[in-house]
């Protein structure tokens, strides 16, 4: 049986909640495109807090995950808006610029987002970004070091599956 328990797309209800709460802009033209530096830098900082480098594997941004996420927004309006709003929210919580915060402060904000009501903007943004970032990061072989996974399943398979 196949399934994925996470609903990572915004549901109609969630979109409506965001609209009603005035979080979604009515005048979309007032917005800066998601691929502008304003958002890219915040997104990078956020992703490197979620997936930082350690002594074995690189950080999310070192593998270009921020750019892949931005590329993914071009065909998904709700996702695009979620990222813009989320980044603005992060800046708002950081006295104007999330990227100016030290790692411990960033971590504190993310911990708060993780615990927030699952239908609120911070939680929706956090959960979606965590989900997408993990998928993009762990689809790059550079992230597999230390896992015991050296290559994709094929063409060699795992003839050592019994050991």
């Amino acid at each position: 049986m196949i399934r994925n328990p996470f609903n990572t797309k915004l549901t109609r209800r969630e979109l409506l909640t965001l609209f009603l709460a005035g979080i979604f802009p009515l005048n979309l033209r007032a917005f800066t495109p998601t691929d502008s530096p304003e958002y890219i830098l915040v997104l990078r900082a956020l992703l490197d807090t979620l997936i930082p480098a350690d002594d074995i594997t690189p950080s999310a941004s070192a593998l270009g995950i921020h750019q892949e996420i931005i590329d993914g927004t071009s065909s998904d309006f709700a996702y695009d808006q979620l990222i813009q709003l989320g980044c603005r929210w992060l800046n708002h919580q950081s006295n104007g610029d999330f990227t100016n915060l030290q790692m411990p402060q960033r971590i504190q904000i993310l911990q708060w987002m993780e615990q927030a009501d699952r239908h609120s903007l911070p939680a929706l943004f956090f959960n979606r970004l965590r989900y997408e970032a993990m998928a993009l990061y762990y689809s790059q072989p550079a992230s597999w070091k230390g896992l015991g996974l050296e290559r994709p399943p094929q063409p060699l398979g795992y003839m050592d599956y019994q050991s």
Partner: peptide, 19 residues
Amino acid sequence: EADLVGPINYAQRIVPGWG
């Protein structure tokens, strides 16, 4: 069948946390 055969699904679904 549960799709727990690669790092993405472990990271997304069954190993909590981040950082």
